[in-house]
Design a protein around this nucleic acid. Structure first.
Lengths: 204, 204
DNA sequence: GTCTATAATACGATAGAC
DNA sequence: GTCTATCGTATTATAGAC
């Protein structure tokens, strides 16, 4: 069902409704905590009807994770080895933060999966994430050798970008409890830009 | 059962065994994903025997979360308003990173709870976390006014410390998949020290 | 205090009518 | 394609013997 088989409009609409409802439920309660009843109700379908579109609960989850991985890595893929180093990295940071703001449920879906040991995503980490990170870290190292950015462990640099930006989606409840009525996303961009400009500025 | 009522040594040992097993299971599978069977087996008890010590599955979870909150906030509480600002903050960073290294399960227990909207911890966030953060942010702001550290949003500064350090515990699987055989905790301390020294250095 | 047995329910998945 | 009814199992929690 993950391929491009042609479907009727109704089928496509129902599949999308299921995935939308599943994203909401899985990201809030985790895989085990989610129930087909909740997802079916959210999609406006009966439980057996949901299972007409997907063979199992796990199939829905896997479809969601697989479909998101590509989108999630796009900003890193777009990092241009021939662009201006500082601006390329700052653009990456901005795009990642923007994804946390616009797609917090997707971020929490991943977070749930990784925190619990990535039982359904280990292969994607090894096959897709790791090679891409290796490639981009090589770019960072070239920039460092050319004196264009400060010397730093490139892997930790990428972890920094991930953790600092995704934190605002994954720990949203905590952030908002601490900040009260102030909108975290209003001030976070400037803060992160300042941090990364200082961190990346090449030493004299 | 959370109070200081006297108990026999056997009772204390069993309670500790239950909480240890529960930490393992809850942190790996989340609240809903954990089963009393797993916890009881991990503690070497039968399921009804476990329920002799705790009235319900939720009671075990709440006890774990409550007991950990204090420990978790200790490093922030210890931040000394009269100490050297940069060194105080770096010490806080180091201690938080050390907690991620030594107590990753505790970190993931919290992460699971927060990512899923903190259904059993909202009060603790409001009553304990927020006042402490407010107090320490006031200290940061005084340091900034005195020109001892760079001007930055103090709340985002604290979020940075949390996200950068806890990432190594919460996203352990991802970090290790990307870094392969290299130990993240061997290089992370130097990386984080460099980042925060640059970030906090007061402008001229 | 600890166990076996079991109640009571929740949940994923299927059967079969329409 | 969609529904109602239901099966089979997993899971929390309790009853009651020892």
């Amino acid at each position: 069902m993950a391929d491009g088989r042609p479907r009727t409009r109704i089928q496509q609409r129902n599949r999308e409704a299921i995935l939308e409802a599943a994203l909401e439920v899985f990201s809030t309660h985790g895989f085990r905590g989610a129930t087909l009843d909740q997802i079916a109700q959210g999609a406006g379908l009966s439980k057996p009807n949901l299972l007409y579109y997907f063979p199992s609960k796990e199939a829905v989850h896997v479809e969601l994770l697989g479909g998101l991985m590509d989108t999630w890595l796009d900003p890193l893929r777009d990092l241009d080895p021939d662009g201006d180093p500082i601006e390329e990295i700052l653009t990456y940071v901005r795009r990642k933060l923007e994804m946390s703001r616009l797609y917090p449920r997707e971020s929490r879906l991943f977070a749930n999966e990784i925190v619990q040991g990535a039982p359904r995503m280990k292969d994607a980490l090894t096959d897709e994430l790791r090679p891409l990170v290796d490639a981009k870290c090589a770019v960072f190292e070239r920039w460092m050798e050319d004196g264009l950015i400060a010397r730093l462990d490139p892997y930790h640099l990428i972890f920094s970008i991930w953790s600092l930006t995704q934190h605002y989606a994954d720990f949203d409840v905590q952030v908002r409890t601490v900040m009260g009525p102030r909108d975290p996303f209003k001030t976070a961009p400037d803060y992160l830009e300042a941090v990364f400009r200082k961190t990346l500025a090449p030493g004299t």
